[in-house]
Design a protein around this nucleic acid. Structure first.
Length: 414
RNA sequence: GCGGGUGUAGCUCAGUUGGUUAGAGCAUCUGGUUGUGGUCCAGAGGGUCGCGGGUUCGAGUCCCGUCACUCGCCCCA
């Protein structure tokens, strides 16, 4: 069974792949900081209950996609499949109720036992943001504005659109749910097998089915918008007005629903047409009941998460990596001096690479391969004169520069 | 969990109706140039044809199984 392959649905990240990841994470965190979010890092595993109690017993994530196992101590623990539950748990166990409102940004790996495909891995990475303790639409709008800002800053290729919906409060949702079940039950024969199952488990999910038969049935289904009570309707309107006021374009999509049970009121998704079946690039919503449900004080919350792999695929060209300075000694004694120069330049803030072995030709080839800007050639003549030959690797021009003047001479390449 | 596609050199791929020593480009290494790379020229190394079984005088090629990757369903970020 053991093999030298990575496990299904996992990947090694290196070179440009990890640079893309970093770019997404760092851009997002930088923007989030401007909005007053601070970083939180919760453990990658939690007691299984943390996820079981929050995600809802009917969600596929809980029923078949969690990496759950027993520890040597006999506890059932689970590798986190998403980030919000951990943040909510930290809020409760850390006694943070006194410090609301709180704004958290997080990043890190998540785990779901799914069949991999494009934009879907078993270990994947998310960035996410949460606002805890703010019941008003301002929080919804700030969190969406942050999301839009992050996506804009990443300069994604293709079209990304914001879809928005309201899932109403508990009362509205229960009423609508009953209505939907009644409607679809009467048309059961038109529905796909999947949707017949959903009728029991999660009828709202039928609304965003891709099955053509389902779509036909959905077309005339009662609309959620018509079933929102006054409070929910006002809330939704306030969110929309405020987004419009901030020039954030959105499309109200009545079929937009959430997979996880803890969402209510605002639900939103940024989607793209560039990723095949996995078109959702960032998604979130309001979860006012979550923290109470987990055993904490009643605390409203709203947040989103985005898949770094999906965002990475939409990144246009990476900015070029920093080009190093290559130090090339010729001879043993010269290598010692070169090492000293290398160290001094590094401490002075330069990016410097000195190869480990090889004659000059090999070292030049290597300098070329690592895309060095200049090569500092240090041979016996140079050591005798106290200079380094500084060769510009793009133009081929070379000049001799006294050791003491190197930092100043190279300052443009820092 | 269900359905489709693909597995040949480090990478991208070609390989005729089954036929004898399995090819190319890129990459790598060596030499031309032992203190000058990126260009050029010459040469070299590198393959259990994913794995197992079957059909056949003969299988990279056909059949069955299996594993991996991939796309879609489902689910979701």
């Amino acid at each position: 069974m053991s093999s030298l392959q990575p496990l299904k649905g996992t990947h090694d990240l290196m070179f440009d792949d990890i640079r893309r990841h970093r770019l997404v994470e760092e851009t997002a965190f930088e923007v989030a900081s401007r909005y007053g979010f601070s970083e939180i890092a919760t453990p990658v595993f939690e007691f299984t209950d943390v996820f079981k109690r929050t995600l809802g017993d009917t969600s596929d994530i809980v029923t078949k996609e969690m990496y759950t196992f027993e520890t040597k101590g006999g506890d059932s623990i689970t590798l986190r499949p998403e980030g919000t539950a951990g943040v909510a748990r930290a809020f409760i166990s850390g006694g943070l109720a006194q410090q609301t409102p709180l704004k958290f940004f997080y990043r890190g790996p998540m785990f779901r036992y799914e069949r991999p495909q494009k934009g879907r891995q078993r270990q994947f990475h998310q960035i996410g943001a949460e606002i805890l303790g703010v019941p008003t639409p301002q929080a919804d709008v700030e969190v969406i504005a942050l999301a839009a800002h992050v996506l804009k800053e990443l300069k994604l290729t293709g079209n990304v659109t914001l879809e928005l919906n309201s899932l109403g409060d508990i009362e509205s949702r229960a009423a609508y749910r009953d209505e939907l079940v009644k409607y679809f039950s009467a048309r059961k024969d038109q529905l796909s097998q999947d949707s017949r199952d959903r009728l029991e488990r999660n009828p709202l999910r039928i609304l965003d089915s891709k099955d053509p038969g389902d779509k036909a049935a959905v077309a005339d289904a009662p609309s959620f918008t018509d079933h929102l009570n006054e409070l929910s309707r006002d809330f939704f309107k306030a969110v929309q007005d405020c987004l419009a006021a901030q020039d954030i374009a959105f499309k109200v999509t009545p079929a937009l629903v959430r997979g996880l049970d803890y969402y209510g009121h605002t639900a939103f998704e940024f989607t793209t047409d560039a990723l095949g079946a996995q078109g959702t690039v960032l998604a979130g919503g309001r979860y006012d009941g979550l923290i109470k449900q987990m055993g904490g004080p009643q605390t409203p919350g709203i947040g989103w998460a985005a898949g770094i792999e999906r965002l990475s695929m939409l990144l246009s060209d990476l900015p070029p990596a920093k080009r190093p300075i290559a130090v090339i000694p010729i001879g043993e004694e010269e290598a010692k001096i070169a090492l000293d120069i290398t160290a001094k330049l590094r401490h002075a803030g330069f990016t410097v690479d000195m190869g480990y072995s090889g004659n000059m030709g090999k070292r030049m080839t290597r300098a070329n391969k690592i895309k060095a800007v200049v090569a500092l050639i240090i041979g016996s003549d140079e050591v005798r004169d106290g200079v380094a030959t500084v060769r510009n690797l793009d133009t081929g021009d070379q000049v001799k520069v006294p050791f003491a003047d190197l930092a100043r001479h190279l300052s443009g390449h820092r």
